[in-house]
């Protein structure tokens, strides 16, 4: 063993420690703050609302300190003339932050809807995608053709068009409105469910393509061996091919999840007040378009990074030596 090696690993130097603090921590700390805020918001607004002392949507952070600071910074900028532009920008940002404290409760509610929309759609989409992909790989000629047609039709047309067709051109909304419980209490109203159905049908097509590719990459000898011990073809697919295919599909499945978090914003076009919808409503009232869309971009980024981190955990949990990618 060389001397260089022995100095690094057991006792990390100061540099290494600083490196850890500044490269890894800000993301973790940022995400932790984000989720603490989101969870606190949901708890106050959904659970504690109505209980004395808790008003739904009351900002956690007061606006006043931001306004005072903004005024102070602006007064510094005035004598500088054109050179004070950066200070003016800081003052404007602080003023928007003051406004944002009032918007954030609504956005937290939007985050809840976005998460529900994504989780329902990606899970229901998966339950459709799995049989679709098995049919694509192992089905008879006609079944394969049907599954392929579905996939191509969905992937070949815009998601927004699919959403509009379901919302405006079918009586799905009326049917859903008649379902008992829809729109009552915590259960979202019919437009939300139309969006869920639309995203499910869409996501199923994409997920089935990812799964098909993974199932096809499982070695043919695996099914042969399964058949040789007396499993039927369907049992062999279920117990041997699919468990391996799913592990191989995880990275691309993460991709689909991340896409859907962002694509779910299209639901705002059929009145669903998810994260984008709420932002857009506020922007239309306040004309603070740029600031609000920067803010919502940060919130989406937090959701996406959290989803990737979660799927990373799932991947390392599901990792099996020799199947898919294994971390050392």
């Amino acid at each position: 063993m060389s001397t260089a090696e022995s100095t690094t690993s057991p006792n990390p130097g100061l540099w290494d420690r600083i490196g850890t603090v500044f490269t890894v921590r800000p993301l973790t700390v940022g995400l932790a703050l984000f989720w603490v805020w989101v969870l606190a918001r949901w708890t106050t607004d959904f659970v504690l609302a109505g209980v004395s002392g808790f008003d739904r949507g009351t900002p956690f952070i007061p606006a006043a300190p931001f306004l005072t600071t903004a005024d102070a910074v602006a007064s510094l900028a005035t004598p500088l003339g054109a050179a004070g532009a950066p200070l003016v920008w800081v003052a404007d940002t602080l003023r928007f932050t003051a406004d944002a404290t009032a918007y954030l409760p609504a956005l937290a509610h939007g985050i809840w809807t976005t998460i529900l929309l994504t989780v329902f759609s990606v899970c229901l989409g998966f339950t459709l995608a799995l049989p679709l992909s098995v049919v694509r790989v192992y089905g008879g000629r006609w079944a394969r053709w049907l599954a392929l047609s579905y996939t191509e039709l969905i992937r070949g047309t815009p998601l927004l068009a699919q959403l509009f067709v379901l919302y405006f051109a079918t009586s799905l909304t009326q049917v859903l409105r008649g379902v008992p419980g829809v729109g009552v209490g915590f259960v979202p109203a019919q437009a939300f469910w139309v969006a869920v159905i639309s995203f499910t049908l869409n996501s199923a097509a994409y997920q089935s393509e990812y799964l098909r590719a993974s199932l096809e990459s499982v070695d043919g000898g695996q099914l042969t061996a399964a058949r040789a011990i007396g499993l039927s073809k369907l049992e062999g697919i279920r117990y041997v091919v699919v468990p391996q295919g799913l592990r191989l599909a995880l990275p691309s499945w993460t991709n689909e999840l991340v896409y859907l978090i962002k694509y779910s914003s299209l639901a705002s076009f059929i009145t669903v007040q998810e994260l984008y919808g709420r932002t857009s409503t506020i922007a239309n009232e306040t004309y603070q378009y740029t600031e609000l869309f920067v803010l919502v971009a940060i919130l989406y980024l937090a959701l996406v990074v959290s989803a990737s981190a979660l799927m990373d955990r799932v991947e390392s949990h599901a990792a099996t030596a020799g199947v898919g990618h294994t971390r050392q």
């Binding site: 695996q222 042969t224 061996a225 399964a226 040789a228 011990i229 099996t320």
Partner: peptide, 13 residues
């Protein structure tokens, strides 16, 4: 009838 394969074909997972 059991079978043993040239490429083993053990269930990888």
């Amino acid at each position: 009838v059991g079978m043993v394969f040239q490429d083993f074909n053990l269930f990888a997972h």
